[in-house]
Simulated assay, not measured.
Amino acid sequence: MSKPIIRPIEKADNEQVAAMIRKILIDIGVPKVGTAYEDVALDQMFETYDRPKAAYFVVVADGNIIGAAGVAQLDNYEGNVCELQKMYFLEEARGKGLGSEMMKICLDAARRFGYDQCYLETMPYMKAAQKLYQRTGFHYIDGPMGDTGHFSCPVHMLIDL
């Protein structure tokens, strides 16, 4: 595998990003209902993040997208809080430090956009991801913020930016 690069999403990436995320969600056994799997935005990620105070990034190696993540305003929330959204990596991208690099890029973007905090939702069994989030400075909170529609994701975390 060539050295992966992280870059902003392009319109031509939409189909590959949606397929990658859905494959990962199926592979790890995430419910299709109440998770990112059924998000309408999944098929239009470039358009979804092509707005103020939002950014989505992809990890590319050998011409293939092997990971992705982004930040945008937390849905249905009044405060100045963004959400770390749709951060997923194919198996071949894991354990190479790409998650840490992606977290830095996403949180730096959130800071540039002027957000005060960044929120995320995940699944209880996604322990490796939670360790990464904690190493980055996220801490667990007691319940959801905003209303993302991801009612099947019961783990909530927050970081002050």
Results as ranks from 00 to 15, higher is better:
residue 106 C to K: 05
residue 14 N to C: 10
residue 103 M to S: 08
residue 64 N to E: 15
residue 70 G to M: 06
residue 35 T to W: 02
residue 76 N to Y: 06
residue 117 Q to N: 01
residue 55 A to M: 07
residue 118 C to D: 02
residue 33 V to R: 02
residue 49 Y to W: 07
residue 39 D to M: 06
residue 8 P to C: 02
residue 119 Y to W: 01
residue 85 Q to T: 15
residue 19 A to C: 07
residue 76 N to A: 13
residue 43 D to T: 09
residue 54 A to Q: 07
residue 52 P to Q: 13
residue 108 D to T: 11
residue 13 D to F: 03
residue 88 Y to L: 08
residue 80 N to K: 02
residue 91 E to C: 11
residue 106 C to N: 01
residue 76 N to K: 12
residue 26 I to M: 05
residue 21 I to M: 05
residue 69 A to N: 09
residue 72 A to H: 13
residue 73 Q to G: 11
residue 88 Y to S: 10
residue 48 T to K: 13
residue 11 K to Y: 05
residue 105 I to K: 00
residue 5 I to N: 08
residue 79 G to R: 03
residue 100 S to D: 14
residue 110 A to T: 12
residue 60 V to G: 05
residue 35 T to E: 10
residue 51 R to M: 02
residue 84 L to Y: 11
residue 32 K to C: 08
residue 100 S to N: 15
residue 64 N to P: 07
residue 52 P to N: 14
residue 91 E to R: 06
residue 25 L to H: 01
residue 61 A to W: 07
residue 77 Y to E: 06
residue 2 S to I: 12
residue 62 D to A: 12
residue 1 M to I: 12
residue 17 V to Q: 08
residue 74 L to E: 09
residue 83 E to P: 02
residue 29 G to Q: 00
residue 86 K to A: 10
residue 102 M to P: 05
residue 2 S to H: 04
residue 74 L to I: 05
residue 78 E to M: 14
residue 5 I to F: 02
residue 94 R to L: 03
residue 20 M to N: 09
residue 16 Q to M: 14
residue 29 G to P: 02
residue 112 R to L: 13
residue 99 G to W: 11
residue 71 V to H: 07
residue 31 P to F: 02
residue 67 G to N: 09
residue 51 R to F: 05
residue 2 S to V: 11
residue 34 G to W: 06
residue 89 F to K: 06
residue 116 D to M: 11
residue 40 V to L: 12
residue 31 P to H: 04
residue 124 P to Q: 00
residue 122 T to L: 08
residue 83 E to R: 03
residue 2 S to C: 13
residue 13 D to E: 11
residue 79 G to L: 01
residue 67 G to H: 09
residue 98 L to K: 07
residue 109 A to E: 10
residue 94 R to I: 01
residue 19 A to M: 01
residue 32 K to A: 06
residue 103 M to H: 08
residue 121 E to L: 04
residue 18 A to H: 00
residue 5 I to C: 10
residue 123 M to S: 02
residue 103 M to L: 14
residue 11 K to R: 12
residue 52 P to S: 05
residue 43 D to Q: 06
residue 17 V to Y: 14
residue 100 S to P: 09
residue 117 Q to E: 15
residue 18 A to P: 08
residue 30 V to E: 06
residue 97 G to D: 03
residue 44 Q to E: 14
residue 119 Y to A: 00
residue 74 L to S: 08
residue 117 Q to S: 14
residue 64 N to V: 13
residue 37 Y to F: 15
residue 25 L to Y: 04
residue 52 P to I: 11
residue 20 M to W: 00
residue 65 I to Q: 09
residue 119 Y to N: 02
residue 47 E to H: 05
residue 70 G to I: 05
residue 7 R to V: 01
residue 15 E to K: 12
residue 55 A to L: 04
residue 68 A to C: 15
residue 74 L to M: 00
residue 86 K to M: 10
residue 47 E to G: 00
residue 1 M to C: 13
residue 20 M to G: 10
residue 14 N to D: 08
residue 111 R to N: 13
residue 50 D to C: 13
residue 94 R to G: 04
residue 72 A to P: 05
residue 28 I to T: 09
residue 37 Y to P: 07
residue 13 D to H: 07
residue 100 S to E: 15
residue 84 L to K: 06
residue 60 V to T: 10
